[in-house]
Design a protein around this nucleic acid. Sequence first.
DNA 1: AAGTGGTCTAGACCACGTA
DNA 2: ACGTGGTCTAGACCACTTG
Lengths: 234, 234
Amino acid sequence: MSLYIQVKDLLLARIAKGDWSPGNIIPSEMNLAHELGVSQGTVRKAITELVENNILTRRQGRGTFVSNHDVHRALFHFFHITDNKGHKVLPDSRVLSCRRQPARRNEAALLELPVATEIIRIERVRSIGAKPTMIETITLAAQDFADLDKKTGIDLPNTLYELYETKYGITIHSADEKLRAIPASKHDAQLLGLPVASPLLEIERVALTLDKTPVELRISRCVTKNHYYHNTCF
Amino acid sequence: MSLYIQVKDLLLARIAKGDWSPGNIIPSEMNLAHELGVSQGTVRKAITELVENNILTRRQGRGTFVSNHDVHRALFHFFHITDNKGHKVLPDSRVLSCRRQPARRNEAALLELPVATEIIRIERVRSIGAKPTMIETITLAAQDFADLDKKTGIDLPNTLYELYETKYGITIHSADEKLRAIPASKHDAQLLGLPVASPLLEIERVALTLDKTPVELRISRCVTKNHYYHNTCF
DNA sequence: AAGTGGTCTAGACCACGTA
DNA sequence: ACGTGGTCTAGACCACTTG
């Protein structure tokens, strides 16, 4: 393996281990180069790849920082619903329930947990401009999110990924989404104020950490009358 | 502007102008460096960014080439339908019609053409394993694709983007997709063998060239009973 | 003024593909 | 054997931020 890949892996390991945490500065390129006995150019190339992966952020004149995966990031990387003009809108959310339960078989499989492991299941309705637009069912491994179910509806923030990072030290880095069209169930239809069997866009998202461990399963069923799921491909 | 950005823009201009065409080799880094009066490292950095944009391809020991946006690329960058196991499948296609018509208002808007410009409209049904799965309506500016409508159904290849590149010199580089769930029309239902109003996944895709000119509008309506639209977000 | 990342150069050696 | 890209080094100057 080339030297800069080894440096990259070493930096990654330190970040994953928590030696350097989100928002904090890492040593300068020169310091790392001296410490590791390589040239600055090699450290630079390793850091460049991590910056391209959104894991580090460079700020000229200041230093290199572990990325903060904040609201902005969550919004831009993981939230793809836009209005008809293509503008992203952050919907409000109302929690319907938040309970501990044994994992169903498919949930356990997607989260790579043993069957019937205890999970936390959150159900909420998300609205755009007072109009109910999405129903979300969120599944988390209970062991990783102690006491999350004890929070009241108001304590559960709109943007959960920020909470995962700040309270539980779990940073969501990528996600895998599967989309399909499904008919609204009676329950869905009632919550969303639609006729039964109206077409809904279902998004099944598995959110992953840096080392590709699945952390959250989120199934969203969306009304796509005034909104789209927007994706740009290169 | 930094030097390597200028070099990058210059290379881009030559590619767009057609001095170097897809599949062909460009001069070596050393030659470009001498020609432009900069160091090899600067040319290298410019080329690196173009490689990251999938515009150039490096082959060690051989040289640097203008990317071929071939079947493989089209499949991996622009085709997101997978089976339930997550494997991509390339569907067959049967052309229903291929006609010249005046552009409708929304088509003209999305393709950035004057209203009522003549367009070519292709309608086809795509099947996976003999099962009709998607209906596609493709709209192209007639002026850019002379005689495309004169091809018979068999002459129209399954993978159109390759045809655009090889026969018309138009390379699709990125695409913008909007997804929503819609009920199947009578026409859709008949072609796909489904009850009327079954939920379908509609994908409205605008395909763009390197300089972001919209070239093709493609509306796909997909049965998502045994297939998903798959997206990975970083 | 000092330290950081951003750019640029020049030169070295390696791994790979072709002739 | 030769030319290509791939990696690595060392050193220079610039632009930006902080103390």
